[in-house]
């Protein structure tokens, strides 16, 4: 009996250590963002009003203001930034899915002795700095960059294309940076697939394309969903890619939040931007969490 109690106490301690850490440094900070989003900006350190005010009475009065949220609704810049982030993330995710599926499918079909090396070639860029991989595209895409030099010397175009500082560059950047995140879950799923099912379909007179569409795609749906979430969710709030590759007219909410915080120093508005972004992403994040837990156990 004593032993059992010891084990149970030990169990609580083991759960408690990582739990308290995440509560203090992940969960608690969100409550503070929520709190500050209801404050008003002032010129002081820190630059926002406090929600509770102690006057003469024992109980503090609560001074919550919805100004930051009303401000976001009022200015079409913010709504457009949310919509354009969702659009850019959706299109990039779909492009990454098509490219990633072709690569993951081909790796899964490759001879076993090659698969390890091919997979490592996918993982290597996944571990390489995001910033460096985005930076690498600047030299390629800019007006006097390598892509234009190549196309002009091949005689494909006479005048350099303007790709750098446009939405197109942002699409290229997101697809390139997040492609490994798409390939890895797709491959994990396709690797387990029984390709003899396709032979069975072919034996029964099904054309390869139809077999792919009616057998392979439905079977790999969990991988497709996991890959899409892994690309879509962080891409919506992406900052580095639109900042370095996009132009002034490229609107993305991650960049707006950064500007609001670092340039305008309006902390309540930056907090409100973060809270609404979180509200948009909370459903996909929870769905992703559920599917991942199911996949692991």
């Amino acid at each position: 009996m004593k032993n059992l109690r010891k084990i149970i106490n030990g169990r609580a301690a083991v759960i408690g250590i990582p739990y308290l850490w995440l509560l203090a440094l992940f969960f608690f900070p969100f409550l503070i963002v929520l709190k500050i989003s209801f404050a008003e900006p002032i010129i002081a350190i820190p630059p926002y009003t406090s929600l509770l005010e102690w006057g003469d009475s024992f109980w503090p009065t609560i001074k919550a203001s919805l100004d930051s949220y009303l401000f976001l609704l009022d200015d079409s810049l913010y709504i457009n930034a949310y919509l354009s982030s969702l659009k850019i993330a959706t299109i990039s995710t779909l492009i990454a899915l098509v490219i990633g599926y072709a690569i993951a499918y081909s790796i899964a079909k490759a001879p076993t002795r090659w698969r390890g090396i091919l997979l490592m070639l996918v993982i290597l860029p996944f571990w390489t700095s995001f910033l460096i991989r985005v930076y690498a595209w600047i030299g390629i895409l800019k007006t006097e960059g390598l892509l234009n030099l190549l196309l002009i010397s091949l005689g494909v175009i006479d005048k350099p294309l303007t790709i750098m500082n446009t939405d197109l560059a942002v699409y290229i950047g997101i697809v390139y940076s997040y492609l490994p995140f798409m390939i890895l879950p797709l491959y994990a799923n396709l690797e387990k697939m029984d390709f003899s099912l396709l032979e069975a379909a072919a034996d029964l007179g099904c054309r390869p394309f139809k077999a792919f569409w009616t057998v392979t795609i439905p079977l790999s749906l969990p991988g497709i969903l996991a890959g899409c979430f892994l690309v879509f969710i962080p891409a919506v709030g992406e900052f580095v890619i639109p900042d370095l590759l996009g132009g002034t007219q490229t609107l993305m909410i991650g960049k707006v939040l950064w500007m609001e915080f670092f340039s305008n120093r309006d902390w309540p508005v930056a907090s409100a931007v973060a809270i609404i972004l979180l509200a948009i992403l909370v459903v996909p994040i929870m769905y992703y969490q559920k599917s991942q837990e199911k996949a692991i156990s």
Partner: peptide, 17 residues
């Protein structure tokens, strides 16, 4: 699971605040 997909700007802002 959330910190792995959550946009970095949100995590950064919340910790800073």
């Amino acid at each position: 699971y959330a910190p792995m997909v959550m946009p970095e700007v949100i995590i950064g802002l919340s910790l800073l605040l």
